[in-house]
Structures are given as C-alpha cells and as structure tokens.
C-alpha cells in the first residue's frame, strides 16, 4: 500500500516535472518566463534596489496601463483583428474625462464618459473593419490619426486638474492593503479575461472566428458580433488605461500615448499570440508585459540613458514578429 502510493506520487511528480520542463523549453510562455526570471536575478545582483517591494510596485504600476490594454488586444488579435488606435485614446479620453470632471466634479460621471468613448470608438472601428471590409490594421491606423486629431481639436493645451476630487488621484497613485491600485486593476482585468478566454463560449468563439471565419459561420457562430465584441472590449480597456494614466499624470494631455499602441501590440505578439489569428495566450501577454516593464525599470536602475526606454518597444516588436514568423514557418510545413 505504502509503496504503491509512494510510487504514484513519484510518477505524479515525474509527470509534473516533464510537463514543467516541456513548458519551459518548448513554449513561448516558458521561454519568456525563463528570460524574465534571468533578468530579475541579474538585476537583483546588480542593484540593491531592484528586488524591493517598493521598486516592484513601481515597475508593475508603470506597466499596468499597457497591460490592461494588452489584455483586450490579446482577445482581438486571436479573433483575427487588430486595433492600432489605442495610443491616441490615451490622450483623447484623458482630455475629455478631465474636462468633464472639472465642470461637474462628478467622478462616476467622468469615468462613465471615458468608458463610453471606448464603446463608441470600438463600434466605429468594428464598423469600418467589418461592414466596410477595410483591413483592421489600416482602419484603426486611420482612427489613430482621427482620434489624435480630435484630442488636439478639443484642447490646444493640457487640461489641469481643477476639480480636486481626492479619490481621483487615488486611482493611479493610491494603495489598497499596501498594494498600488493600478496593480490591483491590472491583475483583476488579467484574471477576469484569462477566465473569459479559456473557460467561456465567448472565448472559444473568439478562437474560432480567428482560426477560420468560414468554418465558424458554418458552425452557427455570429462571426461579426464576436469580432465586434473584441473591438469594443479592446477600446473600453484602452479607455480604462487612459483613466489610470490621467490620474497618475493629474492632467489631461493631448499629446500623450504616442507609441502606446506599439507597446500593447508588441507585448501581445511577444506573448505568443499569432498575427494570423486563432491562437494566443493570455499568460504569454502577462509575461511579455512583465518583460517590458522589467527592461524599462532596469534601464533606469542601471543608470542607462533613459531615452533607450522607447527603443526597447521597437526591439520587442521585432523579436515578437520574428518568433511569430518562425513559428508559422514551422507549422507551414505540416
């Protein structure tokens, strides 16, 4: 009895180890995990500040906006579409929400307006892409300009905080049980949509419409509706990011968020989500965002010229697309 149960346990551990080593060595998530862990060890050795609660808090807060938008983007990319307009949304939502707050001093209303802009822009994106049949990369690149233009049109200068609502600054800078709010939002959004993507029919349909829209239609899946939900979700989460950013900056700036879309899309691709749709990984996106934050944090800690922070995004995109192309080449031979 004892022997056999020990044996089963032994086998169980063995199986776990084989799986774990397969995950580490053969999946993009595993490779990312490995890289992030290695850099963390390196930075911990190099800088006494790195592995402190305060610094990790700063690191995660800084990437929380990118992360929240990237969660929506993961779903959208799996469904076979993309949204490049999320960068300008950071500015447009910011200036509108700040001026609503200034004129009404109603926090709930301000947030509602911000999220509503997300819904509207998401609907416009899906309309152009799905109804008019314009490739979503082109359609949303156009929207990137249009939304940026709208932000500039709305205000020529940045809009300062004149409402002085105390809870407003808490959104981006406050703590809950010692954890910064942005990190809580980030983890909550990640967990919710990890579940939605892997355990719900909507998540399954997202994969199906991205993998083969014709097959999905013939299986009775409302392809356009699913993709539209993806567009709206991405845009709303981008608005949510914008509100957190607004709170952190404490002013609505019409020029903010340039290149933000590249960060979000780059993280999703680096996380192993395919540019051609149908497959992707929320965990991968999480790890990629973590890598992005770690690199930026490391640049500061190691006293490297901080302009390189911007270049990191470009580097990540290239690596991500290379990995994607390599994977597709491998599959193409099957």
């Amino acid at each position: 009895m004892l022997d056999s149960s020990a044996e089963t346990r032994g086998r169980g551990i063995g199986k776990f180890l084989t799986r774990a080593s397969h995950w580490l060595l053969h999946t993009q998530e595993g490779v990312l995990f490995f890289i992030v862990a290695a850099i963390w060890v390196f930075l911990t050795i190099q800088s006494p500040v790195f592995f402190t609660g305060r610094n990790i808090g700063v690191l995660l807060s800084q990437v929380s906006m990118t992360a929240i938008t990237a969660v929506g983007m993961t779903i959208l990319l799996i469904s076979g579409e993309i949204d490049a307009s999320v960068g300008s949304m950071q500015a447009f939502v910011g200036v509108i929400v700040m001026s609503v707050l200034n004129s009404t001093s109603n926090l709930a209303l301000g947030i509602m307006v911000g999220l509503a802009i997300g819904v509207v822009v998401g609907l416009i994106n899906s309309l152009i892409s799905l109804r008019l049949g314009i490739n979503s990369l082109i359609a949303t690149l156009a929207m990137l300009s249009i939304v940026r233009g709208a932000a500039f049109g709305f205000t020529e200068a940045s809009i300062q905080n004149t409402h002085k609502i105390p809870t407003f600054t808490e959104i981006g800078n406050g703590f809950f049980l010692g954890v910064p709010w942005p990190i809580i939002f980030f983890f909550a959004v990640f967990l919710i949509f990890y579940f939605v993507l892997s355990r719900t029919t909507f998540g399954r349909f997202v994969h199906a419409v991205g993998a083969n829209p014709e097959a999905a239609t013939l299986a009775g899946i409302p392809v356009r509706l699913v993709k539209m939900a993806g567009f709206v979700l991405t845009s709303v989460l981008a608005s949510f990011s914008a509100i957190i950013l607004l709170s952190r900056l404490n002013s609505g700036q019409n020029g903010i968020g340039a290149g933000f879309e590249l960060e979000a899309i780059g993280a999703v691709l680096l996380g192993g989500t395919s540019l051609s749709g149908g497959e992707g990984s929320m965990v991968g996106t999480f790890l990629a965002v973590l890598l992005l934050g770690t690199l930026k944090n490391g640049i500061v800690l190691l006293d490297i010229n901080s302009s390189w922070q911007v270049a990191v995004t470009g580097l990540i995109i290239i690596v991500a697309v290379l990995l994607d192309a390599r994977r597709r080449r491998r599959l193409g031979q099957d």
């Binding site: 994969h207 199906a208 993998a211 097959a215």
Partner: peptide
C-alpha cells in the same frame, strides 16, 4: 477550408457547434 480550425485542439474542433 470550411470546417477545420487548425490552431485548435481536437476537442475544441469536435465541440465547436
């Protein structure tokens, strides 16, 4: 071309409908 979801598992393909 009209039926298979190549990146998905056998299970997900079987239970699609």
């Amino acid at each position: 071309s009209d039926g298979l979801l190549m990146p998905l598992s056998v299970k997900d393909n079987i239970t699609l409908v």
